[in-house]
Simulated assay, not measured.
Amino acid sequence: MSRLLSADEVDTQLAGLPGWSRRDESLVATFEAPDFPAAIRLVEAAADEAEQMNHHPDIDIRWRTTHWLLTTHDARGLTQLDIELAHRISAAAASQGATARD
């Protein structure tokens, strides 16, 4: 099992993740794609990354807007897996022309 990150560790790593923030024991972000097919491609790309990591996000999609929630359930909080997956989701979003929304 991955080690829980301290609040300071999470805050430090969030500085390198524009659009992501901490909500309780989770990381959350919203990305808006140019259109619905791009949003679906973003979800597909992130799903491939998540499957490779065996670490799966909660995803909500509304037209071209995707909402993401990451946490390590078995650790009951945030681990390096969540940070790494957030980076991969951000990269997938950029590749589809999606932008982070607050």
Rank of each mutant, 00 (worst) to 15 (best):
D74M: 08
F36H: 12
S90N: 03
R23P: 04
M1T: 07
P57M: 06
I59Q: 06
A92G: 04
H56L: 12
R88P: 05
L5K: 03
A7P: 00
T99C: 10
Q52F: 13
S26R: 14
W20V: 09
T65F: 01
W63Y: 14
V10Q: 07
A38F: 05
G16A: 13
G97E: 01
E49M: 10
M53R: 15
R22Q: 15
P37H: 06
R62I: 10
M53D: 13
L17P: 03
V28A: 08
T12I: 10
A91K: 13
M1D: 02
I59E: 09
G19Y: 07
D60F: 10
H87S: 13
A7K: 12
L69E: 15
A94Y: 02
W68G: 09
A29R: 08
D102K: 12
H87N: 11
L4A: 08
Q96M: 08
D48Q: 13
D58C: 09
T65G: 01
T72F: 06
H67F: 13
P34D: 05
L4E: 00
A29N: 12
T12F: 11
V43S: 00
Q52N: 15
A92R: 01
F31H: 03
D8S: 15
W68R: 06
H87G: 09
I40A: 08
L27E: 10
D48M: 13
W68D: 06
D35N: 14
Q96G: 01
T30K: 13
F36N: 09
H87E: 15
H56P: 10
F36E: 13
S90T: 07
Q13D: 04
E44W: 06
I61M: 14
E25R: 15
S95Q: 14
R23Y: 08
R22L: 09
T71I: 00
I89Q: 04
T79D: 00
S21E: 15
T65E: 09
A91E: 14
A91W: 03
H73K: 11
E25I: 11
D11E: 15
F36Q: 11
A46I: 11
S95C: 04
T79N: 03
S2L: 08
D24Q: 14
A93E: 05
D35V: 01
V10P: 06
L42Q: 03
W20Y: 11
A92K: 00
H87A: 11
R88N: 12
A7W: 04
L17I: 09
L85P: 06
T30D: 00
R62L: 12
A50C: 13
H67S: 15
L78H: 01
A91Y: 03
R23T: 14
L85R: 00
T66E: 10
L78Q: 01
D82L: 02
Q52C: 12
D24H: 11
W68T: 10
E32A: 06
W20F: 06
L5N: 07
R41T: 10
A93M: 04
A33K: 07
